[in-house]
Design a binder for these strands. Structure first.
Lengths: 141, 141
DNA sequence: ATAGTTGTAACCATTTTGATTACAACTATA
DNA sequence: TATAGTTGTAATCAAAATGGTTACAACTAT
């Protein structure tokens, strides 16, 4: 199974807010038309990003604005903000048989390797900041 | 979303076959009682592992046996054998708006970072062989 | 011939996802 | 202060993936 598109939607949303926010009022409708999803999906994303302390959103009059410095926001922050993965990335079959030597020890044998893989993924995400993405984006604009 | 338990089931299944295969006939029922899932789930797993050339299964009389050397089977091989992830690990929202500077370039900005993260995960899995797991398992048995 | 298996199709319930509708609450401003 | 434009959130919905389960034809060792 793939990791939910909430993640890339969140990245796209944030980039829009940080890059276009000075020029336009960043409403959920505006962002939705850039990402090309339903505005409610964006509002949910904004809600998560707000909870994570990354942006602020004006209720009523509307518009999202940066709170955190772009250097202080990593892809990993977004990945956790939108709950891509809760806890372990790898699902484990429940209740392996403790009467079998393999079933009894499968966790002891496997768990560390699985977390190492998950950590490798997450560390990679921690190494990329929103500021990095903005720099790259500016090369194209 | 998490990565399907087919993966850990496959690891468990293979360990059972490689470690207990000399002592017992490894039928889907036997393995199922160690993993603690339905035997049909194990048969599906065996089918994938057979297609990957890792084991052989005797139709009729029953029983799975190693084909590949345990040193030549990595966690990554199992991960691909059971189709944990087809292609990209990260789902991407489709059709970002090409009229928006962000929507137009979001792939150019993000794709490499996402594949880097996926590769980091997969490389970690490539670094662990079935033989490694068997050694660890023997310490506990 | 028979008993025990495998291989596979079929169907189900559950969960997750993202789309969508609906509407109360809020706020700038005319 | 009335209004228009938003946000926040609940409620539904359809689609897809997952794993469980039943069923049964095909196979094989004895």
């Amino acid at each position: 199974m793939k990791i939910t598109s909430r993640f890339t939607v969140a990245v796209h949303t944030l980039l829009a807010i940080y890059v276009l926010g000075k020029e336009y009022k960043m409403t959920s409708d505006f962002i939705a038309s850039s990402v090309n999803v339903n505005p409610v999906v964006i509002r949910r994303t904004l809600s998560s990003l707000k909870s994570a302390g990354i942006i602020s959103v004006k209720a009523g009059s509307g518009g999202a604005m940066p709170v955190k410095d772009a250097d202080d926001v990593t892809l990993y922050d977004l990945y956790t903000a939108v709950d891509c993965v809760e806890g372990d990335l790898f699902n484990f079959h429940e209740n392996p048989n403790p009467k079998c030597p393999v079933g009894k020890n499968i966790h002891a044998v496997l768990d560390l390797h699985l977390s190492a893989a998950q950590t490798a993924l997450e560390n990679e995400l921690k190494g990329v900041t929103l500021a990095d993405l903005m720099k790259q984006l500016n090369l194209f604009m």
